[in-house]
Amino acid sequence: MKDLILKRLKELETIHNITILYACESGSRAWGFASPNSDWDVRFIYVHSQDWYLSIDESKDMLDFAIDEHELDLTGWELRKTLRLFRGSNASPFEWLQSPIVYLDPYNFRSELWQLTNTYFKPRSMAFHYLGLAKNSSKKGLVDGLMDIKKYFYVLRPLLAAYWICHKKTVPPMEFALLLEQLKSEEALYAAIQTLVRKKVAALEGDLTEPVPIIQTFIQKQLTACAILAKDLSAEQAVSTPLNHLFRAFIQLSYVDNQ
């Protein structure tokens, strides 16, 4: 599958006259609980030629494609869009930079941007982002009293990310296993979630399970507790200067590379 993904990414570079700076896996395969029929969620960051940035009109700043017959979901963000969202502590680029499955990083982009994570990480906004995801998914997961197994993790993963931020005040890891380590001292809860992970990995899309009382209690308690803690977290916005330098460097790099 990796060869197909690399082939598709190379085709996109040619068709759209772009340079892909970074491409990785997102979604359940990167989070660590993929089902047998999980999609391949490929996310990439790209840059145009200099002329694109010197036009008076702003053009579309992302590439998004329908899932194909290979269950391949491809979405790309243009560099300026990515850096603007990164400046605002949008969770997606922070996660992509931590993906354990990297397809392309020819210019060391991941390392360059990762060095700025502490500068632009805003604990309050990211914690509330994750809490919002968890809360919305908790409402949608129940079907006739049963819980969609996939949705269970759409609640637990962002909730554990918010829990991490509220208690550690650092960027949360992308991988679920690392987030779960926070609960290792709560043996019964930890074991229950591990059991649910094993069930998720074996489940197909749409499979349901009985709600697990100890997990449900944790979810309801922490949705409230983390919301209270998040209010006191920092929301300071850093200046854009370092990101402007990085942006110009990669625009120039792309220009030189294409000569």
Results as ranks from 00 to 15, higher is better:
residue 1 M to C: 14
residue 247 F to M: 06
residue 191 A to F: 07
residue 78 E to H: 04
residue 3 D to R: 15
residue 78 E to I: 11
residue 176 F to I: 05
residue 14 T to Q: 15
residue 35 S to E: 03
residue 61 D to S: 04
residue 153 F to L: 01
residue 230 A to R: 03
residue 123 P to E: 05
residue 220 Q to R: 02
residue 127 A to Y: 02
residue 178 L to Y: 12
residue 252 Q to G: 04
residue 160 L to F: 00
residue 159 L to A: 01
residue 186 E to T: 08
residue 187 E to T: 11
residue 99 S to K: 05
residue 238 A to T: 04
residue 29 R to H: 05
residue 152 Y to W: 09
residue 123 P to Q: 01
residue 250 F to L: 06
residue 133 L to A: 12
residue 80 R to C: 06
residue 24 C to R: 01
residue 91 A to E: 14
residue 221 K to E: 04
residue 12 L to M: 14
residue 55 S to W: 11
residue 110 R to A: 07
residue 195 T to Q: 08
residue 174 M to D: 07
residue 139 K to S: 10
residue 197 V to H: 05
residue 67 I to M: 10
residue 11 E to C: 14
residue 215 I to F: 00
residue 223 L to Q: 05
residue 153 F to I: 00
residue 230 A to L: 00
residue 190 Y to Q: 01
residue 125 S to R: 10
residue 3 D to Y: 11
residue 165 I to E: 04
residue 46 Y to E: 04
residue 72 L to T: 11
residue 105 D to H: 05
residue 87 R to F: 12
residue 2 K to H: 09
residue 20 I to Q: 01
residue 40 W to T: 09
residue 133 L to C: 10
residue 114 W to V: 08
residue 139 K to G: 10
residue 145 G to W: 03
residue 224 T to R: 14
residue 77 W to E: 09
residue 15 I to Y: 14
residue 211 P to D: 07
residue 182 Q to M: 03
residue 102 V to M: 07
residue 56 I to E: 12
residue 111 S to N: 09
residue 115 Q to K: 08
residue 230 A to C: 00
residue 143 V to A: 04
residue 26 S to F: 09
residue 41 D to S: 05
residue 258 N to M: 08
residue 108 N to V: 14
residue 252 Q to I: 08
residue 125 S to V: 13
residue 163 Y to P: 06
residue 53 Y to K: 02
residue 256 V to W: 10
residue 106 P to Y: 08
residue 157 R to H: 06
residue 251 I to F: 00
residue 197 V to K: 05
residue 120 Y to M: 02
residue 219 I to C: 02
residue 75 T to F: 15
residue 37 N to Q: 14
residue 113 L to H: 01
residue 176 F to A: 00
residue 57 D to Y: 11
residue 44 F to W: 09
residue 182 Q to F: 03
residue 19 T to N: 13
residue 4 L to A: 14
residue 42 V to E: 09
residue 134 A to R: 12
residue 105 D to G: 01
residue 223 L to F: 02
residue 217 T to E: 13
residue 78 E to C: 11
residue 112 E to D: 11
residue 222 Q to R: 10
residue 119 T to R: 02
residue 208 L to V: 01
residue 26 S to G: 00
residue 256 V to N: 13
residue 19 T to F: 14
residue 228 I to L: 13
residue 54 L to T: 05
residue 151 K to N: 10
residue 188 A to F: 10
residue 193 I to S: 03
residue 7 K to N: 13
residue 99 S to N: 01
residue 155 V to A: 03
residue 204 L to R: 07
residue 190 Y to V: 00
residue 247 F to C: 00
residue 191 A to K: 15
residue 9 L to H: 03
residue 141 G to N: 07
residue 65 F to Y: 15
residue 42 V to Y: 03
residue 256 V to S: 07
residue 83 L to C: 05
residue 10 K to S: 15
residue 200 K to D: 02
residue 11 E to I: 14
residue 194 Q to L: 12
residue 60 K to A: 08
residue 51 D to S: 10
residue 181 E to M: 11
residue 71 E to A: 15
residue 60 K to P: 08
residue 225 A to Y: 04
residue 179 L to N: 06
residue 33 F to W: 06
residue 98 Q to L: 06
residue 249 A to L: 03
residue 94 F to Q: 04
residue 185 S to I: 13
residue 87 R to S: 13
residue 224 T to A: 13
residue 233 L to V: 04
residue 147 M to G: 06
residue 235 A to D: 14
residue 66 A to H: 14
residue 232 D to V: 06
residue 65 F to H: 07
residue 103 Y to H: 07
residue 75 T to P: 10
residue 79 L to Q: 02
residue 182 Q to E: 09
residue 103 Y to Q: 07
residue 170 T to H: 14
residue 16 H to N: 08
